[in-house]
Write a protein that binds this DNA or RNA. Structure first.
Length: 430
RNA sequence: GUCCCCAUCGUCUAGCCUGGUUUAGGACAUCGCCCUUUCACGGCGACGGCGCCAGUUCAAAUCUGGCUGGGGACGCCA
C-alpha cells in the first residue's frame, strides 16, 4: 500500500509552495488508495511555534485535505538517539564537540526520480554531517530518514529544493540497512516574474489568501494546475475529480510562475457558480470576520448583496470595496462622476422619487417599469436617467444592474439617496 | 566557486516517452467586435511560442551532444 507524507516545519506559515506539495501528496495517496501522513518536523525547538502549527493544520483542512496519521518529531527524540547510537556503535558516526557526526561513505550516488528519471551525484559538498546537535536535538536529514523508514513511507514527494538532500539521505539509509522509498521531486513555484517566490511579490501564506477572500476550492484548483494538468484542456477541476485521475508521474519538471490573474479568474468562476444560499453563508462569514458589517445587518441582506455582485467580484474581499455602498451611505461622489453630475436632472429625479414612493411592490420588474415610464413622460432616454441615478445610489459611475441594485437597497434607502443627489445639485447651483 | 535540476505563446499548459496525423491545441492576460443602462458576465475574433548551434533521419517541438539562459542546494535551519 502506498504511504506518502507531507512534512511541514512549524517555523512559519504554510505557504503556497508547501500547500501544493501537500496537495500532490494527498491527491496521489487518495488516487492510489494509500495513506496520507502528516509529520510535523518540529525538531528545532527554538523556532517551532504553536501558532504556526495551528495555522498549518487549519490551512491543510481548509483547502479540503485530511490526513490518516499525524506524527510530531519532537515526540520521537528517543528513537533518533537510538539510531544515532547504532551508527556510533558500527563506527559509521562519531562524537565530536558534543555532537554526533555521520561520516559519508561516498563514491557516487544515484537514484531514480519518479518525475525526473535518473539523477546522479558525483560529488558531495562535505564528508560528514551533523545528525545530533551538541544540545542533543537531532537534525533534519537524519530524522527524515529514520521517520520515513519507520513510518514505512514508500514514496517521498517533496520540493525540488530537497533534491540535493537526497544523496545524503540515501547514504544514511544504506548505513542503517533501511529500505529506500521512491522519490518524486516536484518543481518549485516561482514568483510572477520567474524568480524566487517571496513576500515581496504579494501574499505567500495560505491564510493570507483566505483573509483576502479566496475560496478554498479555487485556491486548491489553481495550485494543482501548477506543474500538473488533467491533460484534456480543462482548467476547472475539483479536488474530488482530481483525486480520481492524479498521477505523480504526470507532474512536470518545470518550475511554474505564480500568476495572480489566473487565480482570480478561477476564484471568480467559483463565486459565480455558488448557489445563493452558499454565497450568503460565505459572504456573511467573511464580512463578519472582517468586522465590516454595520450593527444589525441581516444575514439575508448580505446574501442579497453578494448575489447582486457575484459577477463582478473576483474575491469575497472585493465586496469590501465594490459593495461598500450597500452597507454605508457616507460615500462622496467619485471624481470621475463629474461629467454625469454636470447636468442637473433634479426635476426628473424628483419625478422618479415620487413614483417610487408610491410603489407597494418594490421588485425589480416593477421598478424598471416605473423607471421607464418616468423617462418616457420626461421625453428622455432611459440611459440619461440611469447614469445619474447610479451615481446617487452607488456614489460611482459603475455598478451592478441599476434596477437590481434598487431592489436590494430597498425603497427607503433609494429615496433617501435620490434626495441627497437633488440636494447636492441644489447646493452646487446656489 | 562546487554540485544538481530545468528549458513549447508574456504566464499556466497539451503535444515530447512510442519522430511524420501540427499551417504546434487550450487557458489567463492584452486588444477588437457583439450583447448592453455603466462596469462586469457571456459570445466571437485577433495578437503571440517550440532559446541557440550542431548531429541522427527521407522526416525533429519530439532522439543525441554542446552552448546559452533560468532555478535549486552547499547551516549544530528544515
Amino acid at each position: 500500500m502506498l504511504r506518502v507524507r507531507f512534512a511541514p516545519s512549524p517555523t512559519g506559515y504554510l505557504h503556497i509552495g508547501g500547500a501544493r506539495t501537500c496537495l500532490f501528496n494527498w491527491l496521489y495517496a487518495r488516487k492510489m488508495g494509500g495513506k496520507f501522513i502528516l509529520r510535523i518536523e518540529d525538531t528545532d525547538l527554538a523556532r517551532s511555534k504553536k501558532e504556526y502549527l495551528d495555522e498549518i493544520l487549519n490551512s491543510v483542512k481548509w483547502l479540503g485535505m485530511d490526513w490518516d496519521e499525524l506524527y510530531y518529531q519532537s515526540q520521537r527524540f528517543d528513537i533518533y538517539k537510538e539510531y544515532a547510537q547504532k551508527l556510533i556503535d558500527s563506527g559509521k558516526a562519531c562524537q565530536k564537540d558534543g555532537a554526533v557526526f555521520f561520516k559519508y561513505d561516498f563514491t557516487s550516488v544515484k537514484f531514480n526520480d519518479l518525475i525526473r528519471g535518473e539523477v546522479i551525484f558525483n560529488e558531495l559538498p562535505k564528508e560528514e554531517e551533523v545528525i545530533v546537535k551538541s544540545d542533543g536535538s537531532p537534525t533534519y536529514n537524519f530524522c527524515c530518514v529514520i521517520d520515513d523508514a519507520l513510518l514505512e513511507i514508500n514514496c517521498v514527494i517533496r520540493g525540488e529544493d530537497h533534491i540535493s538532500n537526497t544523496p545524503k539521505q540515501l547514504l544514511m539509509y544504506q548505513a542503517l540497512g533501511l529500505s529506500i522509498p521512491d522519490f518524486a521531486h516536484v518543481p518549485l513555484i516561482l514568483s510572477p516574474d520567474g524568480g524566487r517566490l517571496s513576500k515581496r511579490h504579494g501574499a505567500t501564506a495560505i491564510s493570507e489568501y483566505r483573509a483576502l477572500g479566496y475560496l478554498p476550492e479555487a485556491l486548491a484548483n489553481y495550485l494543482m494546475l501548477l506543474s500538473w494538468s488533467p491533460g484534456d484542456n480543462r482548467e476547472i477541476i475539483s479536488l474530488n475529480e482530481a483525486r480520481g485521475i492524479f498521477d505523480i508521474k504526470n507532474v512536470n519538471k518545470t518550475g511554474a510562475a505564480f500568476n495572480l490573474d489566473k487565480l482570480k479568474w478561477i476564484n471568480a468562476g467559483y463565486i459565480k457558480t455558488k448557489s445563493p444560499k452558499d454565497l450568503e453563508d460565505l459572504a456573511y462569514e467573511y464580512l463578519t470576520g472582517k468586522n465590516f458589517l454595520p450593527a444589525g445587518t441581516s444575514k439575508e441582506y448580505v446574501g442579497k448583496v453578494a448575489f447582486l455582485l457575484r459577477e463582478r467580484v473576483a474575491t469575497l474581499g472585493d465586496i469590501l470595496d465594490s459593495g461598500r455602498f450597500c452597507f454605508y451611505d457616507d460615500y462622496a461622489y467619485a471624481e470621475d462622476t463629474a461629467p454625469i453630475l454636470a447636468k442637473n436632472m433634479a426635476k426628473e429625479i424628483n419625478a422618479l422619487g415620487e413614483k417610487l414612493t408610491a410603489m407597494s411592490d418594490f421588485g425589480v420588474a416593477a421598478i424598471e417599469k416605473e423607471f421607464r415610464a418616468v423617462c418616457e413622460a420626461a421625453g428622455i432616454k432611459a440611459k440619461e436617467l440611469v447614469h445619474p441615478v447610479r451615481v446617487a445610489l452607488c456614489g460611482r459611475r459603475n455598478g451592478p444592474g441599476l434596477f437590481e441594485t434598487m431592489e436590494v437597497l430597498g425603497k427607503d434607502a433609494v429615496i433617501k439617496r435620490l434626495e441627497r443627489l437633488t440636494q447636492y445639485w441644489g447646493s452646487v447651483t446656489k
